[in-house]
Design a protein around this nucleic acid. Structure first.
Lengths: 186, 186
DNA sequence: TAGCGTGGCTAATGTCATTAGCCCGAGGAG
DNA sequence: CTCCTCGGGCTAATGACATTAGCCACGCTA
């Protein structure tokens, strides 16, 4: 199952592709109308012939980022063991994907979400693996919060230099796995 | 115990106070050199007679925000019950403080931390309650990540509209409390 | 062949941060 | 009393940015 992305007009697609190149090569801060235009070999005002403005470009990138993150998580679940172990697998996939695409991750998860402007259902679909692996909406959200907190704090360099983050992730995984088992039993 | 904030020259203090008023009244996005200057009844370039630039103002605000957040957490621990219950109390204090000061919280926790420029020890001091309440560095970081993830996702409106977040926080609290007890016993 | 839409472009506006350089007024030095 | 210095304002200017207005060429179609 894959997220349903409404097809983009060719012009929009070209702009979004250029924007993504800029973000991945030079970082989020470098995403300007001028840099995107330069990437395409045109001038900034010409971009407005294809997209409504900078915000619209960002929304498209967020949609892509959510779609890809969701795909990574769904894929991780497909291969994974039954629930208790699946939690660790999901967390691992989450971390890997985020660290491999730091700027896209930040873009997709930082600041108010333009929910109105995103494809319907995309958000739920991307988050579904957390529900699948915990079997409980609250535990799912808590697990997602933990994962997001870990990733964003790591990306922002907020943990002390010498932190052994592998171990921290492991601690979180066993903590939530235990909660899951406890919930199942009694 | 309180965080040691090096005293600020009067001019700097006035600028920081104005900046904070702007942030709390109009939000983080409204924090510009012009808005801060206007708040003081002067022109933007005059600010440079007191501070090095916008970044310097933000660093001061981050230091204040960390200090106050830390104070709130330490205070919560002082009143709280022994460890298992203290976790819930700490989380409650964390959430309350963040939601009561959303823009200062965002400022203090979003984006790369200018660690070099912050008062030494401030960061560790602010995070100490998490260590105190879990008794384990990894669990402490995991708990902090959970709390931060919850708060920032809530602030950014990323949870589905109708989420019962109180219950999610509660689920997280019991999850981590259980982990703490398990660690103590066997 | 006349139109017209597509997709460029330049010029201009307004917001920001920041720098350069001027100026006044209060206080201390003589 | 006068002069000098310095703190702390100010205006003007520069250089990113986003965005708008209005012009123009190309290619396809009637």
């Amino acid at each position: 199952m894959t997220a349903l992305q409404p097809p983009r007009p060719a012009g929009v697609a070209r702009v979004v592709a250029a924007a993504r190149s800029v973000v991945e090569r030079d970082g989020l801060a470098a995403l300007t109308m001028q840099s995107v235009a330069a990437e395409m070999g045109i001038r900034a005002p010409s971009l407005y012939k294809h997209v409504a403005g900078r915000h619209a470009i960002e929304v498209e990138l967020v949609a892509d980022a959510l779609g890809e993150a969701g795909a990574a998580l769904h894929a991780a679940l497909d291969e994974a063991a039954p629930p208790p172990a699946a939690i660790a697998a999901l967390l691992d996939a989450y971390r890997r994907h985020a660290l491999a695409n730091p700027d896209m991750y930040r873009l997709a998860t930082t600041g108010p979400l333009p929910r109105r402007e995103l494809p319907a259902g995309l958000e739920d679909w991307a988050g579904a693996p957390f529900l699948a692996v915990t079997g409980d909406a609250h535990l799912a959200r808590a697990l997602w919060s933990f994962a997001h907190g870990m990733v964003i704090l790591e990306l922002d360099g907020r943990f002390p230099e010498a932190s052994d983050l592998d171990a921290t992730w492991a601690a979180g995984a066993t903590t939530f796995a235990r909660a899951h088992m406890d919930r199942r039993n009694g």
